[in-house]
Each structure stands twice: as structure tokens, then as C-alpha cells.
Amino acid sequence: MNGLDDASRKARAVLDEIERAVVGKRDALTLVLSAILAGGHVLLEDFPGLGKTLAARSFAQTLGLDFRRAQFTPDLLPADLTGSFIYDQGRAAFEFRPGPLFTGLLLADEINRTPPKTQAALLEAMQERQVTVEGETFALEPPFHVLATANPVEYEGTYPLPEAQLDRFLLRVGFGYPSSEEEWEVLRRRLERQREEQTLDQVVSREELRTIQAAVETVTVDPDIGRYCVALAAATRRHHHTLVGSSPRGGLALMLVARGYAVIAGRDFVVPEDVKAVAVPALAHRITIRPELWMTEISGRTVVETVLGQVPAPTARDRV
């Protein structure tokens, strides 16, 4: 448990440090960190100006990761992300010049503004953790995480991510608007700082992050908790509002993120509360609603909330 105690303490220290920059978003930040500890990628979907980029930069600073930002525009090409071979006249040979994918934490800003070809190149790299250029494969050194942002309200000139590609993100998280008090706190801190940029201290090194991620792998998941994750994912497929429910990858994501969430909470075991806490961000983006319900308030989120209120949670009644 010592390794996990240390991991929990460091994870909470990371969140404390990030909260110096991102005000009042502890729950959303906890979810993002849970996904990073679980080794996954996160889609931050929310309105402009809510701190998505700041959060990504803050995670990179506190986790000791190299940070690269790629602004996804309609003319962005796959080679702009992966890198390409450039002819070196001095050596009379082609040499590979790596693109922004070769980093620790990549902020893929406004991912839905680039055409599907470039989106696919990024998502393939996320899944395979390697890129192939001109027939040569280059591994992306771990830890490699992508925090992608998308604007949910603009449709003009955007290319919405297909369901199969959304599935590659472990979580989809929204930050939401701050309260008046939190918003004033943002202004107050800016006045106090007397400069625009916010610099955070590095809390863990790249190697320490990998140690924490290894510790997360040792977290106990009771078989009943695993079956609960499976039942929740399966229930989204049976729900009468869904055209396509969560894939089995959704159930897996639920369990993996719940482990990270448990570590941040200081436990070496997952409880049903962890699963419920991460269920909406882990499953909602994997659900396609029936077309006739598109103009209603029904969404992947409401489907997940419904099944959370219907699927029996693990109990001990059968054991007593």
C-alpha cells in the first residue's frame, strides 16, 4: 500500500497545484487526472474561454511532461502532426523531422476543425502509440497523452468526430461555467499576479508519473465491480433512446478510470461510487442517440444517468 499511498499523495498534490491556475474545477480536473493516470486521452468539450487550454498546459507543467500545442485548422495535414522526411543537403540524405505528436502531452486544440484525414492520423497515433511515415514506424515514447478540445456549439466549418474515433478517448469532460465567486477569484488572482501567464511548479517528474501509473495497475477491482461496469455499458446498448450504445471498450474505460479515481481518493480498491462518478464522462460520448430524438434534450448523458438509476449496484446481501 505504500506505493499507492505515495501515488495518492502526489496525485492530490498535482490537483492542488493545478487549482492555483484553474479555479473551482476540482471535479473535472480529478476526472482528467484519473484518465491520465489510467494512461488514456481526454476530450475536453466545452465553450470557449472556460480554461481548457489552461488546464492542459497546467497538467503538462505539474506532471513534468513536454508540452506541444497543435491548432487544428482546415488546412492541417497529417504530416504536420506526424512529421516528415526532409532532405538534408549537407549529408545528402533524408532525415526525419518529428512533428508535434512526439511529446509528452499534446494539446489538440479544436480537433473538430480539421478534416477527417488529419483527425484519423492523430487518433491512430493515440491508439497505436506509434506513427508510420513513408513506411517507417516511429514509437511515441510513454507517457504520451492527448488532451483534445472541441467546441460543442459551432457547426459551420467543422468536421464532427465519428463515433468510432470518439471511442478512442477514455473520457469526454466538460468544465462548465464558473460561479460568480469563482469567476471573481479568477479576476482577483490575475490582478494579484500582475502578468498574463500563469506558471505552475512541477510536482512530479516524468518518471514519477510512470511510477504512479504503474501503481494504478495494482488497484484491486472486485469481480462484482467489473461485472457492474459491464452491465452499465450493456444497459446503454439496450436503452430505447440509443441507436448505438457503448462498445465493450466503454466498459473497459469505466473500470480503468475508476481505478485512477480510487487512487486519487486514497484507496487501493475500487468502490461502486467510483464507477458512478466516472460513468457519464466515460460512456456518454460513446452513445449515439436515435435520429428522431436529436432535437430533444435526450443525449448520451441522460441515457447514462438513466442506466445508473436502473442497473443494480454490487451488494453483499447474497453473501450474508
Binding site: M1, T220, D224, I225, R267, D268, F269, V270, E273, P314
Partner: peptide
């Protein structure tokens, strides 16, 4: 305590 007893292995 119940959660710890029910879902942990330590």
C-alpha cells in the same frame, strides 16, 4: 468500513 471490507483485498 463496509466498502473497505467488501471491495478491498488487503
Amino acid at each position: 468500513l463496509y466498502r473497505e471490507a467488501r471491495f478491498s483485498r488487503h
